[in-house]
Design a protein around this nucleic acid. Structure first.
Length: 414
RNA sequence: GCGGGCGUAGCUCAGUUGGUUAGAGCGCCAGAUUGUGGCUCUGGAGGUCGCGGGUUCGAGACCCGUCGCUCGCCCCA
């Protein structure tokens, strides 16, 4: 740490950047609440086992990207790389199984030790929605609709595309997985180095390889659709019919796979081409086996997470905060009365800024530069008369207002 | 973890085949204007040239390492 610089892959949020994040979170909350979701906030670290048992040892996220450390009590803890596992842990340890179904929304920082890139940080932020205890496809449709409405509310409806797939239930998925292993094993000498590793860890990943040679092999690889059992097929059909009925467009993408191991049935991503390599803006799926896997009661689950930094790069600049009223004391004697007036106005709900130094010209200059809408000038003459001079910074019009009536007199500038 | 590009003032950048006091625009501060802002004019502050080492009489420039950013791979939100 030679110079004082932020840790690699971390970012300070200030000004418009902070406003973009806030806007995304508050938009998400507003839409999710309309869908009947309630807020949840879980710790940013958990016992390491929470993630290792749930995300699967085969996932890169857990096997080589977590921030894991031993605390002073000797416990192995891990900074959360995603929200779902923590929520599932909270569900089990909090005995929430009594209240099903449960619809939860949250947001916050996540941590992954990756090589930073545009749209990929080591500390990044997500909004997250989960529905627990609904094995029916209605939940899939509702959660997908929530995602679509959220992105729509951010003004991104036309800039993202929904890609949809099913992974089938556990049986279907396992059968298909085995079929892929059988198929690709015959071509081990032709597979890329990366795909060779995927072959035993996560063979479905080979399907979306970008390697030329791999792609040729993929063309004739077994199709997932052929390995779906009746139940899986019916389930997916209902999801699709639901989306059609709601007018939510999507494209089927048989090669869409989730990165984390616990997913089954519906999987989806909202993607964009505007962000380069990090095109996925929201990703989700169903995870009916997760909670049981963690030692809880068999409970269906489905949810998604969206990357706030990625969305922040796409949305239009959020509206700036309310334009302030600037209070400009003139002369020593006005300093304290100015403070009193500022406080009264703030307590009455106005946004008030004060110039801290300089002559009237300087203070007005600063006020207009910071976007103030009106300046209240307070000097010896005004104090003697019990008034302030109210200067509209857009029109330059000045009026005299009695200090006693100042809250109501400024109503137009609230 | 792999490969490519880039780091000069708060910001955007210039800086000749290596040459002595490193520049511009914008921004910032002050004055012109001690009770009136945006324009204008004048002046000023601000730089370990990312950091460390090497080559050289001499390095912002060349070489090596390192840190950071960035694009792609991988992975994923």
């Amino acid at each position: 740490m030679a110079a004082l610089q932020p840790v690699r892959g971390t970012h300070d949020l200030i000004g418009e950047e902070a406003r973009r994040h806030d806007h995304i979170v508050s938009t998400f909350k507003a839409v999710a609440h309309r869908y009947g979701f309630q807020d949840i906030s879980t710790p940013i670290f958990e016992f390491s086992e929470v993630f290792h048992r749930t995300l699967g040892e085969t996932s890169d996220v857990v096997s080589k990207e977590t921030y894991t450390f031993t605390d002073r009590g000797g416990e192995s803890l891990t900074l959360r790389p995603e929200m779902t596992a923590g929520i599932a842990r909270a569900f089990i340890s909090g005995g929430l199984a009594k209240d099903l179904p449960l619809k939860l929304c949250g947001h916050g920082p996540m941590f992954r030790y990756e090589r930073p890139q545009k749209g990929r940080l080591r500390q990044f932020h997500q909004v997250d929605a989960e529905v627990l205890g609904v094995p029916e496809p209605q939940a899939d449709i509702e959660v997908l609709a929530l995602g679509a409405d959220f992105l729509g509310a951010l003004g991104l409806g036309s800039r993202v595309e929904l890609k949809l797939n099913t992974l089938g239930d556990t049986d279907s998925r396992n059968n298909y997985r085995q079929a892929l292993i059988n198929y690709f094993s015959a071509y081990q000498d032709q597979l890329s180095e990366d795909s060779l590793k995927r072959l035993d860890r996560n063979p479905m990943r080979i399907l979306d390889s970008k390697d030329e040679g791999d792609r040729k092999l993929v063309v004739d690889a077994p199709r997932l659709h052929d390995y779906l059992n009746e139940a899986s097929r019916t389930f997916f059909d209902k999801v699709r019919r639901g989306l059609d009925a709601l007018g939510i467009g999507y494209t089927l993408d048989e090669r869409l796979v989730r990165g984390l191991d616990y997913y089954s049935h519906t999987a989806w991503e909202f993607v964009t081409t505007d962000l380069g390599a990090q095109g996925t803006v929201l990703g989700g799926g169903r995870y009916d086996g997760l909670i049981a896997l963690m030692g809880g009661p068999q409970t269906a689950g489905i949810g998604f997470a969206a990357g706030i930094e990625r969305l922040a790069m796409m949305i239009a600049p959020p509206v700036a905060p309310a334009r302030a009223i600037a209070i400009v004391p003139i002369g020593e004697a006005a300093e304290v009365p100015a403070l009193q007036i500022a406080r009264r106005l703030r307590q009455a709900g106005y946004t008030v800024e004060q110039g801290y130094r300089g002559n009237v010209g300087k203070r007005l200059e600063r006020a207009s530069k910071h976007g103030a809408r009106v300046a209240l000038l307070l000097g010896d003459d005004e104090i003697a008369a019990g008034t302030v001079k109210c200067r509209d910074l857009d029109t330059r019009a000045e009026t005299v207002v009695a200090i006693g009536q100042i809250e109501s007199a400024l109503a137009d500038y609230r």
